[in-house]
Nucleic acid binder design. Structure first.
Lengths: 150, 150
DNA sequence: CCTACACCCTCTAGCGACTAGAGGATCAAG
DNA sequence: CTTGATCCTCTAGTCGCTAGAGGGTGTAGG
């Protein structure tokens, strides 16, 4: 494998990831340290395109870097049981579903506010209640939003 | 109102928010500067509990601090002219709906990944396979997840 | 051959929204 | 009167990048 010999910019275009992000992924160990040309430029191959696309896709799905690392390790070693991968995905799914539920509660409240004809004053704005009252939450909602859990 | 006189630690427990986060919210203007005791300690009341709970929930839902500020302003001033409030609410509603759509796309893809039964090795794992090949995705889920697009 | 310009290199700093820790003051209980 | 919890301010670290400075290199046209 590794037929092509790609510059970092070409790799970036192929995987639709920005150049500095590729260097960043190298630093944090998601991508292997690539070979270099005589003039110190990074050289990549098609395996790197695949790996980087994998990373990008996983990140888009909201997996955090540690989870991506775990998933990459799993995909690197096809003989490992895939329960681990399923568990990671299930965890991610639960997270997404919890967020959807809460957003739907907020959506209906915002709609209610807007639909309520108000001639003059905002009146009985219940936004703060919807967001302030824990009991209105359908589910447990443990962790606050972070970049990765977004 | 403001019957009770709460320490920052008590407020933190009541709203389930960490103490330094409360001080941070004060600095960035989400919480009003509280009164102090003679020995310079912050004193809070029940309004602050409500406000802080609101902030916490809004943040969990992925609203940026700026949006939380706007929502707070909306609920702070019931005499505010309707158009302004409606515009603000509509803006937030659009934001929430976009977020829901995005999360629903993620959810269906995660479900598809998980539902494809793979009981064995990662080599056959659907999760890994899907992550590697974007063409296997049913939906568009183009943009990377950020705090705001959560 | 020279120049222009796109690309590459490393390094540091910045973002949002906190969190963690240092180093010190104060309070409430025993 | 001491102990330990809590409070204060301040700085630095976290995550996952992004932006920019300040320089080297590779290539295409004149």
């Amino acid at each position: 494998m590794q037929p092509a010999s790609l510059s970092i910019g070409t790799l970036a275009r192929l995987a639709d990831v920005k150049v500095p992000a590729i260097r960043f992924y190298e630093v944090i160990g998601l991508l292997p340290t690539p070979h270099r040309t005589d003039s110190n430029r990074r050289i990549y191959g098609s395996d790197d395109v695949r790996r980087l696309s994998f990373i990008k896709h996983a990140r888009q799905l909201g997996f955090r870097v540690d989870a991506v690392r775990a998933l990459l390790a799993l995909s690197d070693d096809p003989d490992r049981p895939c329960e681990e991968a399923n568990a990671l995905a299930a965890e991610q799914l639960a997270d997404v579903e919890a967020r959807i539920n809460r957003l739907e509660a907020l959506r209906s409240e915002l709609r209610r506010m807007i639909d309520a004809a108000c001639n003059g004053r905002t009146g009985d704005c219940r936004v703060i209640e919807v967001l302030g009252d824990h009991d209105l939450c359908a589910d447990e909602h443990g962790q606050p939003l972070t970049l990765s859990s977004a």
